[in-house]
């Protein structure tokens, strides 16, 4: 088992159940995904929405991957739809402690697959990620950072129950489980998540 796989080994199977639906799976990022992820990450439409919008070299990408593999404060998932990789979801714990102990997490999500990005289905992995944080990890509060120009992501997050806590070029949003449960009810009904 690789170091990356070990990140989830401490969680019980009930927590991990949030990472799977019949159509979608969130699997820990492994080496074989790196080339595809770099292509997504360097595409103009993804870079445009990133805090660091400069192209990334494969060498930097590999170095980043090795570093994050050893870090117990974050995890990157490859989002798979019908077994095909379509995007990335990631969690980073804020404050002290490891991912497993975190009460506050920063959540990120992007789709390399343009068809999924604009689809209603785009909500499903977001629901899975957030449910994993609240119901699987026991997090109390989630955070997201979104560029003010990314109106689509801001609306997407608000639909999930996020609220803006700090305005600026980079908008900070937060989410509690109570707000998420309320906001996501119609989504869960439609998407059967």
């Amino acid at each position: 088992m690789s170091t990356t796989e070990q990140k989830l080994s401490g969680f019980n199977s009930l927590a991990l159940d949030w990472l799977r639906t019949p159509s979608f799976q969130l699997v820990e990022m492994q080496e074989e995904a790196l080339e595809r992820v770099l292509l997504w990450r360097n595409s103009p439409e993804i870079r445009l929405q990133m805090v660091d919008d400069q192209p990334i070299s494969m060498a930097s990408h590999l170095a980043w991957f090795e570093k994050q593999k050893r870090c117990d404060k974050q995890i990157h998932f490859v989002v798979k739809h019908q077994k095909a990789p379509v995007g990335i979801s990631n969690l980073r714990c804020l404050g002290d402690g490891t991912l497993a102990e975190a009460t506050e997490l920063e959540v990120g999500l992007y789709y390399g697959d343009a068809k999924l990005r604009g689809s209603l289905l785009a909500f499903a992995p977001a629901l899975m990620t957030i449910n994993f944080c609240f119901k699987g990890l026991g997090a109390k509060r989630l955070f997201a950072r979104v560029k003010a120009s990314n109106l689509s992501a801001l609306r997407f997050n608000k639909t999930l129950g996020y609220e803006i806590v700090k305005n600026g070029p980079l908008i900070q949003m937060d989410l509690t489980e109570c707000r998420f449960d309320e906001a996501s009810r119609p989504l869960c009904r439609l998407l059967k998540v």
Partner: peptide, 10 residues
Amino acid sequence: DSTAHLQLVM
């Protein structure tokens, strides 16, 4: 977009 599509469906 995806959010508008959701609202449209509802």
